[in-house]
Design a protein around this nucleic acid. Sequence first.
DNA 1: GAAACCTATGTGCGTGGCGCACGTAGTGGC
DNA 2: GCCACTACGTGCGCCACGCACATAGGTTTC
Lengths: 108, 108
Amino acid sequence: MATLRPIEFEILLSLAGEERHGYAIIQDIAARSGETVETGTLYRALQRLTEADLARPVAQRRTTPGDDERRQYYAITAAGRQAASAEARRLAALVDVARAVRLLPRTS
Amino acid sequence: MATLRPIEFEILLSLAGEERHGYAIIQDIAARSGETVETGTLYRALQRLTEADLARPVAQRRTTPGDDERRQYYAITAAGRQAASAEARRLAALVDVARAVRLLPRTS
DNA sequence: GAAACCTATGTGCGTGGCGCACGTAGTGGC
DNA sequence: GCCACTACGTGCGCCACGCACATAGGTTTC
């Protein structure tokens, strides 16, 4: 399993919360981190995640009022949860190291 | 400030602990994470960090016995600590999100 | 009413970082 | 003698990313 790219992890984090379409993922990441993800970067990363079976496009849902039909929703797969979980553990370990060398306060 | 690449952060984490030479950084990262960093990747990243004033080569020290003279030691700079600290905070926030969506257990 | 912006998905192109291989060179093991 | 380890580095090809642009309907602004 090739390691998850930062943006791929960000996307999986978004999808782990709930099913989302591309544009909503961009907004979600911006809202929680302030980082602007380029559309080219996002849609291509979504493509890769789909091909790697870490995310999957969700079949078109009933069109509730106010639901833009252009939207393509995506869901995280079981393998996606596993990969994201492993990556989260890896990052948590890194944060622990950062605390050990006092780049972060021990209490947090 | 362009965002820190994953490998650049790993290197700064190593240097935040103590001054290290390139090969020792590779071993340090391998020891703590099991990840193998390619030499090409490492030395070029060290070059970038130096140019960005996040790390700096340390002037040749007294050659204590058993100290390979080929070694080029590097130290983290004040700006490097600042950048690494900011990145660590960013990652800690990501880990918190991962916990919120239950990719990681709340207790850890 | 037109210009600008937002929502929504996607492609085209250039730069650059990374993986892999290789180069150099001394030391130590078998 | 050959291989592995230490230590630093370059060469090359691929591909991910940033930026720009295409498309297109809806809304807001002047």
